[in-house]
Simulated scan of single mutants.
Amino acid sequence: MESEHGGRTETRAGGRAGGADQDPATEAFVAHRNLLFTVAYEMLGSAADAEDVLQETWLRWAGVDLATVRDRRAYLVRITTRQALSRLRTLGRRKESYVGTWLPEPLLTAPDVADDAELADSVSMAMLLVLETLTPTERAVFVLREVFALGYAEIAEAVGRNPAAVRQIAHRAGVRIAARRPRAPVSAAESREAFDAFRRAAETGDLRGLLDVLAPDVVFLGDGGGVRQAVRRPVTGADKVARMLVAGMGRAAAASLRTAEVNARPALVLRLGGEVDTVLAVAIEGGLVTGLYAVRNPAKLSHMRRETTLRR
């Protein structure tokens, strides 16, 4: 079983990281670019939209008088958050007319992302779907507070609320997230063992093996965006999901199936003719597969060509 590999992402706005002749504004932007992308991506669940937000952030940052900026990192995060909030509301309207199930855009992540447990959890496909249940402001507050550990006053400036209101929003969002996120901690070894068992069973069409590793209430979601064939509604239950996977792998006999680190979790990548056809993200809890997220929309697969570096 091979693994996907790719190069590090480059800075679109402000030039390449490590440029020799950067002005102070460009230097600050490049230094925090991976952090800003991570903030935008966690808020939006879309790498393409996160890149657009960074472009907008750069345009605004380039016009700022740096002599008036006390904390450049905080200022950049504030601009990024405001731009992401605006785009999140637009994205919400686009999702209303989306064909079939909308899933976050998968990222081929650098190996070191998985070493940061909190960051890895926050960008997992399962967690990004949980964040979809929050309002735009709740999502921004939760991400900035729980993932990036910003203070209430700093968050208040970013979302246009007062610190007391931000505290209330953070509490409300935290309660909603806690009710939906996995409660049983899973060790890396346990997750890898379950994933490997799932991979072997899926690759060989082993129905019994799939039933052994799938949780009784496992959910399969597919996103074809109206361009590629995908299940339009969630498929629930180990037997239904296992039989669907066996049938699907039988039809994809000519495909190449590989493992990859997608959103800081092991995933399967199906290639046809050398091109990524499907990314199957896997959620594991208690040693069993609880969620499967198949992204087939070609517009969402461009960030599978190279590793994306995420930072807190």
Rank of each mutant, 00 (worst) to 15 (best):
R89H: 07
A50Y: 05
T135S: 14
E96R: 15
M43T: 03
N34D: 14
R16E: 08
F198D: 00
A283Y: 00
G225V: 01
G7W: 04
N162V: 14
E275L: 11
Y293K: 02
R82C: 01
R72Q: 13
A84G: 09
F29S: 09
V219Q: 10
G205Y: 03
A165E: 15
A283S: 14
A299Q: 08
G14N: 01
R192L: 11
T109N: 10
P216I: 08
L272K: 07
F198S: 01
R306C: 06
A156D: 01
L207Q: 10
A184N: 00
D65F: 04
A31H: 13
L129I: 05
T309V: 15
A260Y: 01
H5R: 14
A153W: 00
L76Q: 06
E138G: 10
A201E: 03
V218M: 13
R232V: 11
Q55I: 14
L131D: 04
R93H: 09
R73V: 05
V241I: 08
F37D: 06
A120N: 11
P266D: 11
R296C: 00
L144Q: 10
W58C: 07
V123E: 07
E4L: 15
A20L: 15
E275C: 00
M244E: 10
A264M: 07
A40E: 03
G273H: 12
F195W: 04
V141Y: 08
R139G: 08
D212H: 12
L91Y: 11
Y41T: 05
R12V: 12
